[in-house]
């Protein structure tokens, strides 16, 4: 079971994840239309690139944009959540050990206590995000079951991983659950709005180009995101 899950199943899940995301990017780009979107993607390219970079950079760093600065609380939660989501699985010792064993390479790693802390922070942030969804009328109205399901899908590998790591109750059970959840998440990503892990960049680049090329980017200093 473990062998299957970390072997063929993992390969399949990662395959779907990577290929899925690549396909999404390709479809995104193919679906752009200079006249319909009213952005000359292929003319005035230098302005486009400049606009795209400004747009991405301002928003990828915490408090890098007026929008982030306007709401420090959620921005803080949001970045902790995403930082944890991204870095914990990538640099976890156990994951890299597995990588080395199966694929013969590994990444730089973080210590287990650090990973532990990150995971907990991620879960806490997720908890606050849920609270926020329930508490704030303007978020509540946007929220549907789908949002909670996706949040659960995203958080499940972390929760199960944490439980497994601390060997609460049955290590083996939590480990299996962890792997399954992780793979479910990977598979879900390209097919749901979790695809924003690449489409975030697509969208920001696109809007950056829009402002960089057409909406004022050629005049003055460019949009102060």
């Amino acid at each position: 079971m473990y062998e299957f899950l970390t072997g063929p199943a993992a390969i399949a899940a990662s395959g779907i994840f990577f290929i899925g995301l690549i396909v999404r990017v390709i479809f995104y780009i193919r679906g752009l239309h200079w006249q319909m979107d009213r952005v000359t993607y292929t003319v005035n390219v230098s302005y486009g690139i400049k606009g795209a970079l400004r747009s991405v950079i301002a928003w990828i760093f915490p408090f890098g944009s007026v929008g982030w600065r306007a709401k420090p609380g959620i921005t803080f939660m949001f970045f902790i959540f995403h930082f944890g989501l991204l870095f914990t699985p990538l640099f976890l010792q156990a994951h890299n050990f597995l990588l080395k064993e199966r694929w013969g390479f590994s990444l730089w790693t973080i210590s287990d206590p650090a990973a532990d802390l990150l995971t907990i922070l991620t879960l806490v942030a997720a908890f606050f995000l849920v609270l926020r969804r329930i508490a704030l009328a303007e978020v509540r109205i946007l929220t549907s079951v789908y949002d909670y399901v996706l949040l659960a899908v995203t958080v499940a590998p972390f929760l199960t991983g944490l439980l497994a790591f601390h060997q609460v109750w049955n290590y083996h059970f939590w480990l299996m659950a962890h792997i399954i959840c992780g793979e479910i998440m990977l598979i879900c990503i390209p097919f749901t709005k979790l695809s924003h892990i690449v489409l975030f960049f697509c969208s920001r680049v696109q809007l950056g180009m829009d402002f960089g090329i057409k909406r004022g980017g050629m005049k003055g200093k460019g949009f102060a995101w």
Binding site: I29, G31, L32, D37, S195, L199, F200, S203, Q206
Partner: peptide
């Protein structure tokens, strides 16, 4: 794709 994506990925 631009608008479709926007509609889809909106994080609510």
């Amino acid at each position: 794709s631009r608008l479709r994506t926007w509609l889809e990925i909106c994080a609510h």
